[in-house]
């Protein structure tokens, strides 16, 4: 079973990299650009047929290592 995990900085945490990317895109003329937050993406494959159990394991991976919960949020999507 394959999952996508997206990790982003929490709303109230400053994202200087996202800001620079945003400013650069604005310089390139992307006028309707409103906001950019930069994040991380993990594609995770695990041997487990039960989706609930699989998601539980992915959650554990996120909490134990992949995500710093002080500053980051995450979303899990099945692929």
């Amino acid at each position: 079973m394959k999952f996508a995990v997206t990790v982003t900085l929490k709303k109230d945490v400053l994202d200087p990299q996202g800001k620079v990317v945003q400013d650069t895109l604005a310089n390139l003329g992307m006028k309707s650009l409103k906001n950019i937050r930069q994040g991380k993406f993990f594609e995770i494959e695990i041997e487990e047929r039960n989706q609930l159990k699989a998601e539980e394991l992915i959650n554990e991976m996120c909490k134990k290592l992949l995500v710093n919960l002080i500053i980051e949020d995450y979303k899990i999507n099945k692929l």
Binding site: V13, L14, P16, Q17, V20, N68, I70, I71
Partner: peptide
């Protein structure tokens, strides 16, 4: 901070 022995975290320098 990553072990949890100290709280908080170290973000990227504000001037990048």
């Amino acid at each position: 901070t990553e072990t949890g022995l100290l709280k908080g975290t170290l973000l990227r320098n504000r001037n990048l």
